[in-house]
Design a protein around this nucleic acid. Structure first.
Length: 843
DNA sequence: CCCGTCACG
DNA sequence: ACGTACGTGACGGGA
């Protein structure tokens, strides 16, 4: 008889791993693992262990705990045994069972995130640990040989290595070397004098207490007397049964009290019936409304003013599209509390302005949690109503609503009704949540009015000279061809230069150019790698040029051309609910990354021109993020630095290196600039050393000196991290929040990332708040003063206005004035403004 | 559909 | 030892 295959999963540690790598879905992550094992028939017996509440490590979040409970239920439904024992951690249970059953006729596999279990590897015991590989997360298997290969020792000794690793400054290789030499931590300390390296000896002395303490906590209890009941082995039939079950997350609601949809949905095509609904809407105290717009036309109006009914009004017969739009607008203007979803897309038909009291549920959802990737009615229903509803795709697939009304009217009506139904139910909840989180002002005073300003900017669009863009592209194409020939000549073969894979092979394999740095998939051919080689290998220079030209051609010359409309203008989309920090983003096309740094690319800006009779006025904040930092930190020296002179990077250099301002060298200024950037990004010596190509040691010296010079900045940044760790989110000056779940990660890299984010988000977020305020005020002032000039672009710290010639002076004054006074900081906001006949000239 | 690359602030 | 600077979007290549 063959050996029994027992698979034991460390539920407590695995759910935590899955929880952090697949946010909020730890339970499903581990369930999928169970399913895979069953599917592949890798186990005759499957059990999952959990730490008992009492003795487990501090429970980090409620959410994680809740997911653990969910997972237990799932495991039972999958016929896996759930193992819990008072006073034992999940890892103790696994260790005990492995020891007990490997002596019988069983092969044991332990799946765990807890590396301590590696010490239990033995002849019939292997351990699988989640690891990052080329294909993402996978399970790495460790048997005794694997451990011998990787660590060069017997599994039992690993405990000693892990204990040493708790000392800061001691790496895995060093720890292994020490244990191979001394065999145990206690023996090592007895023979400490035999350690050659002074540095290591020093570390070992400093951390002796910590290491010895850790050594004891690494001992796994192997005396847990749980028994596996093999009569409950999973049969073939049962596996089949489980596989046949249709598992969807919805079968495991995370809340027993989930709300359900109880409303009835109605379709209305009759005028008098519609009028009856409209009048009820106008007298309702709250309502959800949605004009469904597809292909620039209204395909339905969705209305909901009570929990019991939702209406889908279709443009048929006497109910013309214009009539529906007019009615929807009237309702929005007359009713007090209207909630819609994606207001900006409806503004072409709902002629509202920032004075309206309508709120956008999607934007509210974004303010409450900017990390989500969508804010559809389904998302909002899940997050704020605890309700699972079918998504748009579930109901009508990829069809349009009007198509669905013909092919599958019932689902089409459902979809339309859900829009206003969810908006109706969410409205109040969202406002309550915003109040609770102290973001109501941010929402009402900044985010809601911004919708109208963004709409205005999109509607205005920006004129682009089609012919000139084409000529530019043609010039590029000629030079690209020439470069291509030269490169093929130099390399002696034809290949696709735009393929990093092929390029890497040609350069580093065929031509044997040294210094091929690796990425996950092969050689890195990124610009910073190639630049280091370009002086020795002319062909590399050609390739860099080629890259630059093809980028300009595909993304900008050809790319932009496809977006020029019949009005000779590009009307891009400015998204308000994308970024984690509060910035806006730009798509189709991205008008926020038009080249400027390199001369050749900058030329493209010549094709962005004002229309006849107009001229561009461009204004951008100088150093807004550093000014925000100076203000928020309250560091008096940094604030004074801004008060006394213009060139902040030079002053920083002068103060940090203690040299007179007029003696600061170009290099010193450059270094100081990089440090300033680093501070804003959430400083790390590693990052700074990369940015400046200096050693990490030098980089940390710069940072140290910087913090000595500006101690207020240091305490401010430390405070940001501490507060974010306590509260779970970073906050801007105007109360904008960004959750930073990474701060709780047990993974060093992720946690460090969280710390940088906690330092950067309040700064970037505050700058974003400020320009949003400026933008709203400029837009509203233009309109209020009856000026025809309009904002056409926003590029994070820059506003571009297409100004009518006769309004030029007013516009210049208004624009700079509103930008400068958008926020009252301890350092003044400075704005650089320029006028020009193209975006190129106005910069 | 993901990755590497590169354009911007 | 870990192997990153913060925030975005578009493109081409290659599974």
């Amino acid at each position: 008889m063959s050996r029994k295959r027992i698979v034991l999963i460390d539920g407590s540690s695995m759910i935590k791993e899955a929880f952090y790598s697949l946010p909020a879905d730890g339970a499903n992550g581990v369930r999928n693992l169970l399913m895979t094992i069953l599917e592949k028939k890798e186990a005759d017996y499957l059990a999952i262990a959990f730490s008992s509440g009492v003795n487990s490590r501090p429970v980090v979040e409620q959410e994680l705990k809740a997911q653990e409970e969910r997972l237990k239920e799932m495991a039972v439904s999958l016929k896996a045994t759930v193992l819990v024992k008072e006073g034992y951690e999940s890892s103790d249970i696994l260790a005990s069972l492995a020891k007990k059953h490997s002596e019988e006729d069983s092969d044991i596999t332990l799946i765990t995130k807890d590396r301590r279990l590696l010490q239990t590897a033995a002849e019939h015991v292997t351990i699988q640990v989640p690891a990052m590989g080329e294909e993402g997360l996978f399970l790495k298997t460790y048997g005794t040989e694997d451990i011998q290969n990787e660590y060069g020792m017997k599994p039992k000794l690993l405990k000693e290595v892990f204990a040493l690793l708790t000392a800061e400054g001691l790496g895995e290789r060093t720890a292994c070397k020490l244990i191979k030499q001394f065999e145990s931590v206690s023996n090592l300390y007895e023979h400490l004098e035999e350690v050659e390296s002074l540095r290591i000896k020093d570390i070992l002395k400093t951390f002796e207490d910590k290491i010895r303490k850790e050594e004891t906590s690494l001992i796994l209890k192997e005396d847990c007397e749980l028994c596996l009941d093999f009569t409950k082995s999973i049969s073939e039939a049962e596996i089949q049964e489980i596989m046949d079950m249709d598992f969807v997350p919805a079968e495991f609601p995370d809340d027993e009290n989930e709300s359900s949809v109880s409303a009835s949905f109605h379709v209305v095509t009759d005028l008098s019936e519609a009028e009856d609904i409209f009048s009820k809407c106008i007298s309702a105290d709250r309502l959800g409304l949605q004009l469904v717009i597809e292909d620039k036309a209204i395909s339905a109006l969705s209305l909901c003013f009570g929990e019991t009914d939702s209406y889908c009004i279709l443009p048929e017969g006497l109910l013309s599209r214009d009539y529906l739009a007019g009615k929807a607008e009237e309702i929005c203007k007359k009713s007090g509390h209207v909630t819609v979803l994606d207001l900006k897309s409806q503004l072409p038909y709902l002629k509202l302005d920032a004075g309206s009291s309508v709120i956008d549920a999607g934007v509210a959802g974004y303010v409450l949690n900017p990390l989500k990737d969508s804010y559809t009615y389904k998302d909002l229903a899940e997050d704020y109503l605890n309700m699972t509803v079918p998504s748009k795709v579930d109901l009508i697939g990829k069809a349009t609503t009007s198509r669905a009304m013909i092919d599958n009217r019932e689902n089409g009506v459902s979809y339309v009704c859900y829009l206003s139904y969810v908006a109706y139910l969410c409205g109040e909840r969202l406002i309550e949540a915003l109040k609770r989180e102290e973001m109501e002002t941010l929402f009402h005073e900044i985010e809601m009015p911004l919708i109208y300003s963004l709409f205005s900017m999109e509607t205005a669009g920006i004129q682009v000279e089609r012919e000139r863009l084409k000529e530019y592209g043609d010039r590029l194409k000629i030079r690209i061809k020439e470069l291509e020939e030269k490169i093929y000549g130099e390399t002696g073969e034809t290949f696709n230069i735009n393929s990093p894979k092929q390029l890497g092979e040609v350069l580093f394999d065929h031509m044997k150019i040294p210094g091929g740095k690796k990425t996950k998939t092969g050689y890195s051919t990124a610009a910073d790698v190639l630049e280091k080689l370009s002086s020795d290998y002319p062909v590399v220079s050609l390739i860099l040029d080629y890259r630059q030209l093809t980028k300009l051609n595909s993304t900008y010359a050809d790319g932009l051309a496809t977006y020029i409309g019949p009005d000779e203008r590009i009307h891009g989309t400015f998204n308000q609910t994308i970024t984690a920090t509060g910035r806006i983003s730009s798509t189709e096309p991205n008008l926020q990354n038009i080249p400027v740094r390199m001369e050749l690319g900058r030329e493209i800006r010549k094709v962005f021109v004002p229309k006849e009779g107009c001229i561009f006025v461009d204004a951008d904040y100088s150093q807004i993020e550093l000014r925000v930092l100076a203000h928020m930190s309250g560091d008096s020296r940094l604030i004074n630095a801004y008060k006394q002179a213009e060139d902040i990077h030079a002053i920083t250099a002068s103060e940090v290196f203690h040299i007179p301002l007029n003696e600061v060298t170009t290099l010193q200024r450059r270094n100081a600039k990089a440090v300033n950037f680093g501070i804003v990004y959430g400083i790390s010596s590693f990052g700074l050393s990369e940015g400046l190509s200096i050693t990490r040691k030098e980089a940390s010296e710069y940072i140290e000196k910087y913090f000595e010079t500006y101690p207020g900045v240091k305490s401010f940044l430390d405070g940001l991290v501490t507060k974010a760790k306590e509260s779970g989110y970073a906050v801007s000056m105007f109360g904008r929040r960004r959750p930073v779940p990474e701060l709780k990660s047990s993974n060093f890299m992720q946690r460090s990332f969280g710390e940088r984010v906690a330092m950067n988000s309040p700064i970037q977020g505050t700058a974003a708040d400020i320009i949003k305020i400026a933008m709203i005020r400029v837009d509203q002032a233009l309109k209020k003063q009856g000026l025809k000039s309009r904002i056409v672009l926003q590029v994070h710290d820059e506003l571009l206005i297409e100004a009518y010639q006769d309004e030029l002076e007013d516009v210049k004054e208004l624009l700079t004035n509103e930008m400068i006074h958008a926020a009252d900081l301890d350092v003044s906001l400075e704005v650089e403004a320029n006028v020009g006949e193209s975006w190129f000239d106005a910069k």
